[in-house]
Computed example of a mutant assay.
Amino acid sequence: MSMSLYENDTLVSAQRIPIMRSVVIASGEVLEKGSVLGRITATGKYVLSESASADGSESPDVVLASAVDASTGDTAADVYIAGAFIDKALKFGAGHTAESTWHGLRAKSIYIMRGV
Protein backbone atom coordinates (compact mmCIF):
# COMPACT_ATOMS: atom_id res chain seq x y z
CA MET A 1 0.00 0.00 0.00
CA SER A 2 1.42 3.39 -0.93
CA MET A 3 1.04 6.60 0.99
CA SER A 4 0.36 9.97 -0.61
CA LEU A 5 0.41 13.46 0.73
CA TYR A 6 -3.00 15.07 1.05
CA GLU A 7 -3.42 17.99 -1.35
CA ASN A 8 -6.25 20.42 -0.72
CA ASP A 9 -8.13 21.13 -3.93
CA THR A 10 -11.61 21.44 -5.38
CA LEU A 11 -12.30 17.69 -5.18
CA VAL A 12 -12.00 17.13 -1.44
CA SER A 13 -14.31 18.91 0.99
CA ALA A 14 -12.86 20.03 4.32
CA GLN A 15 -15.85 18.53 6.16
CA ARG A 16 -14.25 15.06 6.52
CA ILE A 17 -10.70 13.80 6.56
CA PRO A 18 -10.12 11.72 3.41
CA ILE A 19 -8.71 8.20 3.71
CA MET A 20 -6.70 6.77 0.83
CA ARG A 21 -5.32 3.44 -0.30
CA SER A 22 -3.71 2.02 -3.42
CA VAL A 23 -5.67 -0.17 -5.87
CA VAL A 24 -5.12 -1.61 -9.34
CA ILE A 25 -6.78 0.14 -12.29
CA ALA A 26 -7.69 -2.33 -15.06
CA SER A 27 -5.80 -2.18 -18.34
CA GLY A 28 -7.48 -0.01 -20.97
CA GLU A 29 -8.76 2.67 -18.60
CA VAL A 30 -7.84 6.35 -18.97
CA LEU A 31 -9.41 8.15 -16.05
CA GLU A 32 -9.65 11.70 -14.74
CA LYS A 33 -9.03 12.75 -11.17
CA GLY A 34 -12.32 12.46 -9.28
CA SER A 35 -13.58 9.49 -11.30
CA VAL A 36 -16.01 7.32 -9.34
CA LEU A 37 -14.79 3.74 -9.69
CA GLY A 38 -16.31 0.32 -9.22
CA ARG A 39 -14.51 -2.94 -8.44
CA ILE A 40 -14.68 -5.87 -10.85
CA THR A 41 -15.59 -8.80 -8.61
CA ALA A 42 -13.69 -11.49 -10.55
CA THR A 43 -10.35 -9.62 -10.69
CA GLY A 44 -10.47 -7.07 -7.87
CA LYS A 45 -9.40 -4.39 -10.36
CA TYR A 46 -11.10 -1.00 -10.64
CA VAL A 47 -12.76 0.70 -13.61
CA LEU A 48 -15.05 3.69 -14.14
CA SER A 49 -18.36 2.62 -12.59
CA GLU A 50 -21.18 2.43 -15.14
CA SER A 51 -24.71 1.50 -14.11
CA ALA A 52 -25.20 -0.99 -16.98
CA SER A 53 -22.15 -3.10 -16.07
CA ALA A 54 -22.80 -6.55 -14.66
CA ASP A 55 -19.37 -7.47 -13.31
CA GLY A 56 -19.57 -5.81 -9.89
CA SER A 57 -18.20 -2.48 -11.10
CA GLU A 58 -21.73 -1.12 -11.51
CA SER A 59 -21.65 -0.34 -7.77
CA PRO A 60 -19.60 2.81 -7.11
CA ASP A 61 -16.92 2.09 -4.52
CA VAL A 62 -14.06 4.63 -4.45
CA VAL A 63 -12.97 8.03 -5.83
CA LEU A 64 -9.78 8.34 -7.90
CA ALA A 65 -7.25 10.72 -6.30
CA SER A 66 -5.25 11.56 -9.46
CA ALA A 67 -5.60 11.10 -13.20
CA VAL A 68 -4.47 7.65 -14.40
CA ASP A 69 -3.52 6.30 -17.82
CA ALA A 70 -3.76 2.50 -17.75
CA SER A 71 -4.12 2.24 -21.53
CA THR A 72 -1.07 -0.02 -21.83
CA GLY A 73 -1.57 -2.21 -18.76
CA ASP A 74 -2.85 -2.55 -15.23
CA THR A 75 -1.69 0.43 -13.16
CA ALA A 76 -1.54 1.08 -9.42
CA ALA A 77 -3.35 4.24 -8.34
CA ASP A 78 -4.35 5.98 -5.13
CA VAL A 79 -8.05 6.25 -4.40
CA TYR A 80 -10.15 7.71 -1.64
CA ILE A 81 -12.03 5.06 0.31
CA ALA A 82 -13.65 7.61 2.62
CA GLY A 83 -14.13 11.36 2.80
CA ALA A 84 -16.33 14.19 1.56
CA PHE A 85 -16.14 15.29 -2.07
CA ILE A 86 -17.52 18.20 -4.09
CA ASP A 87 -20.18 16.92 -6.49
CA LYS A 88 -19.09 19.09 -9.44
CA ALA A 89 -15.54 17.69 -9.27
CA LEU A 90 -16.62 14.04 -9.48
CA LYS A 91 -16.60 12.20 -12.81
CA PHE A 92 -19.40 9.66 -13.22
CA GLY A 93 -19.70 6.81 -15.71
CA ALA A 94 -22.75 6.27 -17.92
CA GLY A 95 -25.98 5.99 -15.95
CA HIS A 96 -24.58 7.42 -12.72
CA THR A 97 -24.99 10.89 -11.21
CA ALA A 98 -24.26 12.46 -7.85
CA GLU A 99 -27.90 11.91 -6.91
CA SER A 100 -28.08 8.28 -8.04
CA THR A 101 -24.91 7.26 -6.20
CA TRP A 102 -25.37 9.32 -3.04
CA HIS A 103 -26.96 6.62 -0.84
CA GLY A 104 -24.64 3.81 -1.93
CA LEU A 105 -21.50 5.87 -1.45
CA ARG A 106 -22.69 7.25 1.88
CA ALA A 107 -22.88 3.67 3.19
CA LYS A 108 -19.17 3.43 2.32
CA SER A 109 -18.27 6.65 4.19
CA ILE A 110 -17.97 8.61 0.95
CA TYR A 111 -20.06 11.76 1.15
CA ILE A 112 -21.03 13.89 -1.84
CA MET A 113 -21.28 17.57 -0.97
CA ARG A 114 -22.96 20.21 -3.10
CA GLY A 115 -20.37 22.57 -4.60
CA VAL A 116 -20.75 26.26 -5.22
Rank of each mutant, 00 (worst) to 15 (best):
T72Q: 08
V63S: 01
S59H: 03
S4N: 07
G95K: 09
E58T: 06
L5P: 04
A67N: 10
V23F: 01
M1G: 06
V36Y: 02
V30F: 06
G38W: 04
V62C: 04
S100H: 08
S27A: 11
G38T: 01
T41G: 09
S27G: 12
L105D: 02
A70G: 05
A67W: 00
S35T: 14
M20W: 03
I110N: 03
G73I: 03
V68L: 10
A67Y: 07
I81G: 09
V116L: 13
E29R: 08
I17A: 13
S27D: 07
I17V: 15
K45A: 04
E58P: 03
M20Q: 12
M1F: 06
G115E: 15
I110R: 00
S66R: 12
H103K: 13
G104Y: 04
G28R: 03
T43D: 07
E50I: 12
A82E: 11
V47F: 00
H103G: 08
S13D: 14
G34W: 01
D87I: 05
S100M: 03
Y6M: 14
L5I: 06
R114D: 14
S22F: 00
S27Y: 01
G104M: 09
E29K: 10
M3D: 13
T41L: 12
D69V: 08
V36R: 05
T43S: 13
E99R: 12
D69M: 07
R106A: 15
I112L: 12
E32G: 05
E32S: 15
S109A: 13
T75R: 08
A14I: 12
A107N: 15
Y6K: 09
A94G: 13
K88V: 14
G104N: 11
A52K: 09
I25N: 05
I19R: 11
V47Q: 04
Y46L: 09
G104I: 08
S35F: 01
A42N: 14
V47C: 10
P18W: 05
S4L: 11
L5S: 10
